[in-house]
Simulated scan of single mutants.
Amino acid sequence: MTKRSTTKRSITKVALAPSLDTRALNRATLARQLLLSRAALSVGGAVEHLLGLQAQNVKPPYYALAARLEGFTPEALSRPMADREVVRIVTMRSTIHTHTADDCLTLRPLVQAARDRELNAFRKGLAGVDLDRLAVLARELVEAEPRTMAQLREALLAEWPGADPQSLSIAARCRLPLVQVTPRGLWGRSGQVALTTAEHWLGRSAEPAPAPDATVLRYLAAFGPASVKDMQTWAGLTRLREAFERLRPRLVTFRDGNGVELFDLPDAPRPDPDTPAPPRFLPEFDNLLLSHADRTRVVPPEYWGRTWQGNQAHRTLLVDGFVAGVWKLDGDALLIEPFGTLTKGRREKVAEEGERMLAVMHPGESYDIRFGNVVRT
């Protein structure tokens, strides 16, 4: 079959696939993300299902799970982190994620090619540096004892005094699976960032880089229905089309309002678009908002850009399943800034959810709930 006829057939398949509008995609995604109703899952089970939680800062994974799990307490994440059942490591999109130990040892190899490509931007600062030697030396250093990035950078600079210090530390982070050791990441007990290798911290070897097929299926279970480009955005990888095509016989397809082909698992939940979606308080950098190329399924176009200020993301509020405002803790107040006008009923529901979130995350503390300006202009 010629390439032209293959392309024509693919276009025909997309044209014939059922269409899902924005609200249908929203409800399906919320269901996969455990945000339509809280799940009775363990923390480990939820972190595994969600393929990790974005975690540039310490607190966001805790708030993310409070929005998703029934009976969650901060200690329910701190404990498995202290026991090395979950870890903090750079994986997708070159950002820190909280992963289960098993996913740490498989997802990091999956995205290693992207970490290698990341180093291309630092060639000038790494002129004359033997990257293989750097990886060996950095491994010896952090496995002898956990090191801060400053300590690691200083040791590497002694070996390559003419190199750019920042480039050396980035090279170590890209070439090695470096985890942040506890107490960093523990609720209320977090310390400075100190690093060792995942293999040393977990006491077992990483898996060889896997084919992406199994991760495609897991991504669809947590974020679908989704396009190839959506998953590439989530993973920070390219050239995933072949994996989707291999899996096509096991998947169902749809198209969005722009005609983009979406893939999904046949038995995955796709709730009625009119299914009620309760308010949810999400942390900054929540994966719900970062894991699709087309984010209109959760972020209305008129609010795009309002959850960011400079390079800082605000904590977001979902109302009826869509981003509808931002929030923060300000002294003794939970301050909520809706982007539009909330009906009295929705305002009451938001306040109730705020009270619940505060009771889970800050038990015994007293907060007022106020509607006002979060973003200072």
Rank of each mutant, 00 (worst) to 15 (best):
L237K: 01
A211H: 13
W187Y: 11
A206E: 14
S205V: 08
W187G: 06
S227N: 06
A226V: 07
S205K: 03
Y219D: 13
A226Q: 10
E199N: 00
S205G: 05
Y219W: 10
S227T: 05
W234A: 06
L220F: 03
L217H: 06
A211D: 15
A194P: 07
A206S: 15
A222V: 11
L237C: 06
D213A: 05
M231G: 05
R218L: 08
A194G: 09
T233L: 01
V193G: 14
S227L: 02
V228K: 10
D230C: 02
A206G: 11
T238W: 11
G224K: 13
T197W: 00
M231C: 03
P225Y: 05
E199Q: 01
K229G: 11
A194R: 15
G203S: 00
P212K: 00
P210R: 00
T196W: 01
R218E: 15
W187V: 02
Q232A: 08
G191N: 06
L220T: 10
D213H: 04
F223H: 15
A221W: 09
E207H: 02
A226T: 08
G191D: 05
G188Y: 05
F223D: 09
T197N: 02
R239D: 14
T215Y: 14
S190K: 04
L202M: 01
D230V: 00
P210S: 00
L186R: 00
P212F: 02
A222K: 14
F223M: 14
Q192R: 15
H200T: 10
M231H: 03
L220Y: 13
L220R: 13
V193M: 14
D213K: 04
P212R: 00
A198S: 08
K229Y: 07
A214H: 12
L202K: 02
W201T: 07
P210C: 02
G188L: 04
G188W: 07
A194F: 11
Q192I: 09
G224N: 12
R189H: 13
S205L: 05
G224W: 04
D213G: 08
T196R: 04
A214C: 09
A211I: 06
P225W: 10
A209Y: 00
T233M: 03
T197F: 03
A198R: 01
A226C: 08
S190G: 08
T238D: 15
V228N: 13
A222Y: 14
W187C: 05
T233Y: 03
G188Q: 11
P210A: 00
A209C: 06
P212W: 01
A209E: 15
T233I: 03
D230Q: 03
R189C: 07
D230R: 02
Q192M: 10
T197G: 02
W234I: 01
S190D: 07
H200N: 11
G185T: 01
T215F: 15
L195V: 09
T238E: 13
A226M: 05
L195G: 04
Y219E: 11
Q232M: 12
Q232G: 10
A226K: 13
L217C: 08
M231R: 04
K229R: 15
A221H: 11
R218N: 09
V228M: 10
G224Y: 08
W201D: 12
A211Y: 06
P208S: 10
A206H: 03
T233A: 09
L217K: 13
A221L: 08
L195Y: 14
R218F: 09
T215G: 10
A206M: 12
A194K: 15
G185Q: 04
T196P: 04
T233Q: 12
S205F: 06
A198Y: 03
A206V: 10
R189E: 15
